[in-house]
Nucleic acid binder design. Structure first.
Length: 857
RNA sequence: GCCCGAGUGGCGGAAUCGGUAGACGCUGUGGACUUAAAAUCCAUUUCCAGCAAUGGAGUGAGGGUUCAAGUCCCUCCUCGGGCACCA
């Protein structure tokens, strides 16, 4: 524990300046401004009950340093904060205690806000947003309805993770190793009615858009892999004795001659046609067994291949050979056509299967260099065609196009593209989320709506969205934007319905409504049916949106948080655009960042937004570990609470140390001793800057001090621009150490140092700035400029090497000639000792740096 | 298994253009100030040999390119992250 030195009263200073910034609205972002804008965005937090932990501020401090620096550089800066406040924990708590999730959420937000404010960020708090606020989520709903209108939302039965203990459906990311992330209960697959967004329609755009983004390579790579575009061919195989054809997708049409068997997924629609009567029982048993397996069994555990021969054969379109058709669960129904041609010689999985079931393996690609060792089967590398009749000897890669065009000419196939990306299951069977603003009506009423005179007609998708419920087909109608927000009803019991439906399905007077097909207005069925034939019976959609929904567009709402006419004023969006800097954890590399790009691109295509991509520059801060080098967790007991740190050392020390810890992107352990170190540095700055007896009026007269100051200005500026804050802080430490050792220095020198320090330790900087006669806020004073000409010294140090080893050094005037430097080097006694009896074979002179003499003998 | 990223003192890390390895901070040791402590300051702190001057080794391991390699190339090891039957 550091004791509070009498001089540096950080608590008093920090409270004083936080109040000042708040009262003066120092960090208000101006919507109408001639300055260039700079928008620094943090991934907004989920306000959990546990409060802020030491990892949260790391990214916030980084973006805050940039924000303050850019402000000093003359930009109009926007640095906002808000709350991603829908989500499971508040709902789980409600189930346990009966406390309304909005109460829990509000209390958590208040605590988070208090903690974040205590760190002293340059945030424009007038723009605070909250995804659970109906004024916010009405626009989340509005965007959903746009997607619906454009046919990008549909309803389908989808296999989802169902947790019997939580009696809730979980998202993929909430399931870890077959257990629920919350509570660690087992989960299973269940087919449930889901609202789905057609993100696959944007697969190509999302892929292509990555090229122009300044993002970490690994994140781009992850998104690319997730989208998973592959190029190949769809090939039709004649089934012997049947009218139907079996279509497969392959990326290796060049290996078609090596197809020795085919596989269909257990769920393939043609299975009943393929299976011969004597195999029927065996195949049925296999399919049933496969259906019972969870995804986990089918993938992780069951690397061991299984399958059954159907009894049917296909004909190879290029050589007419009979190929047996198997059913095996290593082929996925959800990818490609759900069927493959198996080429065991050139595919590891097919090879394993063929070996197990003694199916022939036919090589059709050989290495051009004939290297037998490297061409061992299964071989998937490049090569030349063999055993492929007229194609023999051709380069396999070139042959792909040849075979595709031959198949095309025969009407037996075509080039095709496939994606791993699946549509986005957008519904959650929960209470604490944005209600999906759809209602369900009969076909008859739907057709009436299509021809009615009201506003609803124009909001319908080209193809109706339908859902099978209790044996009848229902049709989806949207709420018009005038009816938004569709608020969550108050309920007594937050337990899920237990049937896989949301708790909302049990709130009859909210669920069952009278709906006006013209105006889209609705009232509860507990009320009498209003007059007029356009009022019909309808039920509300009971699913709510996933937590991702609110974070898909929050970066836009900060630009115009109080707009009640639209999600964001186009003029404001045109001015602010997207964040110039976006920082958050790498765990969001795929889902949040992909979903947000999807919505943003969609809104751009709709003409709502001027810019296609939301996040031009992205950065992931690294994890901060506990002092023991383990991930911070309550159970290990190594969690560091920022409140405690601020109490002991102050917010400035916390900020500075989080940045001094190491590279921003690195995973690095916390250290109590370390924060004492930076705290000492701040105390030293405080002491020096108030030691007025050492301060001189006017310009800095000490040459060395002046040079070091400008070197520091340069390095700190570059360090901020390059997000290498640890290096910048080191340089400021070097400068203060120098000033402390100096007899005296100019007050201006101290003032420049204070300005450099201001983005890092803003409270102390404001205080010292004021004490040295500056007018607050220091944040509004122009960033110091490095005078590079001062960095060129009159004297240069040249080091002398013999065979690359350091043997001496000497000072030279800046303009010294190469020859005289070489002569001095050779005359140096230490160098001489290593030249003794040897022959100089080469003399290297690197101007201004070194001499290297290569000798032998 | 595949694809990335990273390995530098006792510790966190600098050295991002191939050109003085270990900046800065922490820790440790010795000292100054003090009645004493705290605070502050000074010296020292990669390893080995030596009283010292100095010499030798050294950036995960091995090899290579170069006058010169932490930095570039090849092989391997360890750790971290991502993907994982996507045909």
């Amino acid at each position: 524990m550091a004791l509070k030195e009498q001089g540096y009263m950080f608590s008093t200073i920090e409270r004083k300046w936080q109040e000042f910034w708040e009262n003066e609205k120092t960090f208000r972002a101006d919507d109408e401004c001639a300055k260039t804008k700079y928008y620094a965005l943090d991934m907004f937090p989920y306000p959990s009950g546990a409060g802020l932990h030491i990892g949260h501020p790391e990214g916030y401090v980084a973006s805050d340093i940039l924000a303050r620096y850019k402000k000093a550089c003359g930009f109009n800066v926007l640095h906002p904060m808000g709350w991603d406040a829908f989500g499971l924990p508040a709902e789980q708590y409600a189930i346990k205690t009966g406390t309304h999730p909005s109460e829990t959420t509000q209390a958590n937000i208040d605590n988070f806000r208090r903690q974040i404010k205590s760190i002293g960020f340059a945030i424009d708090w007038d723009r605070e947003i909250n995804t659970t606020d109906p004024h916010y989520y009405q626009w989340t709903q509005w965007i959903f309805l746009k997607l619906f209108q454009r046919g990008l939302a549909y309803v389908d039965k989808k296999p989802v993770w169902w947790c019997p203990n939580l009696r809730a459906v979980l998202a993929n990311e909430e399931v870890v190793d077959g257990m629920s992330e919350v509570g660690g209960h087992p989960v299973e697959r269940k087919n449930l009615r889901q609202v789905v967004l057609k993100i696959t329609a944007y697969a190509d755009k999302l892929l292509a858009g990555l090229d122009n983004l300044d993002w970490p390579d690994s994140t781009k790579r992850q998104q690319k892999a997730w989208i998973g575009r592959s190029k190949g061919a769809e090939i039709q195989f004649v089934i012997v004795g049947k009218d139907e054809k079996l279509e497969v997708y392959t990326t290796r049409p060049d290996t078609l001659f090596g197809a020795t068997y085919m596989v269909v997924a257990p769920e393939h629609p043609l299975i009943s046609k393929l299976v011969v009567s004597e195999k029927a029982d065996e195949v049925k048993a296999y399919i049933d067994a496969a259906a019972k397996k969870s995804d986990l069994d089918r993938t992780d555990l069951a690397k061991d291949k299984s399958g059954v021969f159907t009894g049917s054969y296909c004909l190879n379109p290029v050589n007419g050979e009979k190929i047996p058709v198997w059913v095996a669960d290593y082929v996925l129904i959800s990818y490609g056509t759900g069927a493959i041609m198996a080429v065991p010689a050139h595919d590891e999985r097919d090879f394993e299967f063929a070996e197990k079931f003694s199916i022939p393996i036919q090589r059709v690609i050989a290495r051009a260099d004939g290297d037998e060792e490297k061409a061992k089967l299964p071989y998937s590398g490049p090569g030349v065609m063999v055993n492929s009749s007229e194609y023999d000897g051709m380069d396999a890669e070139l042959c792909k196009a040849e075979i595709i065009s031959k198949l095309e000419s025969q009407g037996q196939g075509k080039g095709a593209v496939n994606y791993k990306l699946r549509d986005w299951i957008f519904s959650r069977q929960r209470y604490w989320g944005e209600p999906i603003p759809l209602v369900w009506v009969s076909l008859e009423d739907f057709e009436k709506a299509q021809v009615s005179e009201g506003i609803l007609r124009n909001l319908l998708p080209t193809n109706p969205v339908t859902s099978e419920q209790d044996g009848s087909t229902l049709y989806a109608l949207p709420l018009p934007s005038s009816e938004l927000p569709l608020k969550l009803p108050e309920i007594e019991n937050y337990q899920p319905a237990g049937t896989g439906e949301s708790p909302l399905a049990t709130i009859t007077d909210w669920l069952e409504i009278w709906f006006d097909l013209e105006s889209g207005k609705s009232i509860s069925r507990t009320e009498p049916k209003p007059a007029g034939e356009n009022w019909v019976y309808a039920t509300r959609e009971t699913n709510t949106m996933p937590q991702w929904a609110g974070s898909c567009w929050y970066h836009l709402r900060y630009l115009d948080p109080k707009n009640s006419e639209s999600p964001v004023d186009p003029k404001k969006e045109a001015y602010w655009g997207g964040p110039d800097f976006y920082i958050g954890g790498a765990e969001h590399a795929v889902l949040h960042l992909l979903y947000a790009r999807f919505w943003h691109r969609f809104l751009h295509d709709e003409g709502v937004l001027a810019h296609p991509e939301p996040y031009k520059k992205l950065f992931h801060q690294g994890l901060i570990l506990g002092e023991d080098g383990n991930k911070m967790s309550k159970s290990v007991g190594n969690v560091v609470n920022p409140d405690v740190v601020i109490d002991a050392y102050g917010a400035d020390s916390l900020r500075l140390f989080e940045m001094f810890l190491g590279p921003l992107e690195a995973v690095k352990p916390w250290s109590e001793k370390g924060i004492e170190g930076v705290h000492r540095f701040l105390r030293k700055v405080h002491r020096e800057c108030l030691l007025v007896s050492k301060h001189q009026d006017g310009e800095e007269t000490n040459k060395e001090t002046l040079r070091l100051l400008h070197e520091t200005i340069l390095k700190v500026t570059e360090a901020i621009e390059d997000l290498r804050f640890n290096v910048g802080i080191s340089q400021m430490m070097i400068l203060i150490n120098h000033l402390q050792k100096s007899e005296s220095y100019a007050r201006e020198t101290a003032r420049s140092l204070i300005q450099l320090l201001a983005p890092f330790a803003p409270h102390l900087a404001e205080e010292l700035w004021e004490q040295l006669g500056g007018k607050p806020s220091v944040a509004n004073h122009p960033w110091p400029q490095a005078r590079k000409e001062l960095l060129v010294s009159e004297e240069i140090t040249i080091v002398f090497q013999v065979n690359g080893k350091l043997r001496g050094q000497a000072q030279f005037p800046r303009n010294a000639e190469k020859d005289s430097i070489l002569a001095t080097a050779k005359a140096d006694p230490k160098v001489q000792a290593f030249l003794e009896g040897k022959e100089i074979v080469k003399e290297i002179y690197v101007p201004g740096k070194l001499v290297n003499l290569a000798v032998k003998g």
